[in-house]
Amino acid sequence: MATASVTSSTAGRLLGTVRLPLSIFAFLALALGVLGIDQFVNAMTLGAIYALVALGYTMVYGIIELINFAHGDVFMVGSFVAMFISSSLLGNEGSITNVPLLGVSVLVLFALTIGVMALLGALIERLAYRPLRRAPKLAPLITAIGVSFILQNLIQFFFGPTIVTVPQLVPIEWSIQISGSRVPLLNLFVIASSVILMVALQLFISRTRTGRAMRTTSMDRDASSLMGVNINRTIMITFLIGSGLAGAAGVVHGLYYGNTNYSLGFQSGLKAFTAAVLGGIGNTAGAALGGFLIAFVEVGASAFGYGRWGGAVVFSLLVIFLVFRPTGLLGSHTGDRA
C-alpha cells in the first residue's frame, strides 16, 4: 500500500512537472502562429515588463497579504530614477553604439536604479506599513493608496506633469533577421534581462536561507517565527527585492519606450496587479506567467484591430478569472496558498 501510494504520487508529480511547461509551450506556439513573429516579439517584450512589476505585487501579497497599491507607482518612480541616472548622472543623450561602453552603461544603470528603488521600497515598508502590522487589514490598504498619491505628486513636483524623454541607450536600428522578419535587438535585450532577473529570483527563493524564510513566513508567520525567523527583517527583504525588480522594470520601460510620465504607475500598475491575480496571487512563477498572458491578450487585441479595447479585454479576463478560478493559474485548489 505504501509503495502504491509512493508510485502514484511520483507519477502525479511527474505529470504535474511536465504539464505546465507543455501548456506554456503550446500556448506560445499557438500565439506565434496567430500573431506572426513581429507581434509575438512585441507581446513578449511587454509581458516581460508586466511580469517584473507583477512579481512585486505578488511577493508582498504573499508575505503580508497586502495589495500594495503603491507598487505600480514604485515602478513609475523607478522609470524616473532610471531616467535621471541615465541622463543627468551618466550624461547619456541617446543611443550608444560602442558595445563595451553600452554594456557598462546599461549595467551601471540597472545596478544604481535597482539599488535606489530597493531602498525606497524598504523605506516605504518601514514608515508606512510596519507601524500598521497589527492593525485591521483595511488600514494598510488605505495607506498604500496614500503612498501611491504621495509618489505621484512627488514626481509631478520634481519632473512636471508632462511626458519626459528617456535616453534609449540600445540603438533601435540594431536588429537581427528571424525567418524574414526584422527583430530589434532592443526587444530581445528587454526579454533577456527580465528573464535573467526572474530566474535569479526563483533561485533565490528556492535555494537560499532567506528565501526559505520568505516562503515559510508567507505560509505561516507565527510558525515561522517559532523557527527563529526574524519576521520584520524578512518582510523588509521582500520589499527590497520587489521594489528592486520594479526599478529594473522602470529601467527596461525607459530603454524600450524612450519616455515616461508620472501616471505610468496607475495604468501599468493595475495591469501588473491583474497579472499577479491571474497567475495566482502569492505565487511568483504565476505572476511572471500572468504578465506574459496579459501582454499576449493586449497585443492580440490590437493585432486584430481592437487596440483601444486592450484594457477592457484584460480586465474582463480578470473578472472571468475571479469568478471561475479565483486562485489563478497556478493557485492551489485547497486555498491554503498565501
Partner: peptide, 13 residues
C-alpha cells in the same frame, strides 16, 4: 522550542 496548537507544519514543504 514551541510546538504550537494545531501543529502549524509548513504544509507545502
Amino acid at each position: 522550542g514551541h510546538s504550537p496548537e494545531g501543529r502549524r507544519v509548513f504544509s507545502r514543504m
